[in-house]
């Protein structure tokens, strides 16, 4: 597949509102990004199998496989993908798990600030 020059961001969250929020804030500050959405981990893996996104914003608590597991699986095949865990689970243990999995931790609620933090990590 020919590499598209516009970065692709995949938003994985079972909450439609959360997906819409991330999409709205990103579309505002990075209008050239392409955005895909998945509402659970399995759907995310399917999308990744077709075209690996450059950036992924991943919720943790979702029906089916957890966001941490999905992130781990994606990183095995696509170590170049930059992934943030965007979660309401703010415990030290989750932050540590994120660090071990090589992904960036962003605490919910989703705000302009938290999305800016994720974007900074994606583009670093």
């Amino acid at each position: 597949m020919e590499k598209n020059t516009h970065p692709l961001l995949l938003i994985v969250d079972d909450s439609r509102m959360s997906r819409m929020l991330v999409r709205a804030i990103v579309a505002d500050s990075r209008p050239d990004w392409r955005i895909a959405e998945a509402c659970n981990g399995d759907e995310a893996l399917q999308i990744v199998a077709e075209e690996c996104p450059d950036y992924i914003s991943m919720d943790v608590n979702m029906p089916g496989i957890s966001g941490l597991e999905a992130a781990g699986r994606i990183r095995i095949r696509h170590p170049e993908a930059r992934i943030t865990l965007c979660t309401a689970n703010i415990q030290e243990s989750t932050r540590e798990a994120a660090a071990r999995a090589g992904v960036h931790f962003v605490a919910k609620p989703i705000t302009a600030q938290s999305v800016a933090d994720a974007i900074a990590f994606f583009e670093a």
Binding site: R16, M17, S18, T87, A88, N89, I90, Q91, K108, P109
Partner: peptide, 21 residues
């Protein structure tokens, strides 16, 4: 409606996430 319910669910999940911490 579906979006209101989703919003409320997310807000409470942020709450219980903090409580868990």
């Amino acid at each position: 409606n579906e979006l209101q319910r989703d919003a409320l669910g997310e807000i409470f999940n942020i709450g219980v996430g903090r409580a868990a911490a």
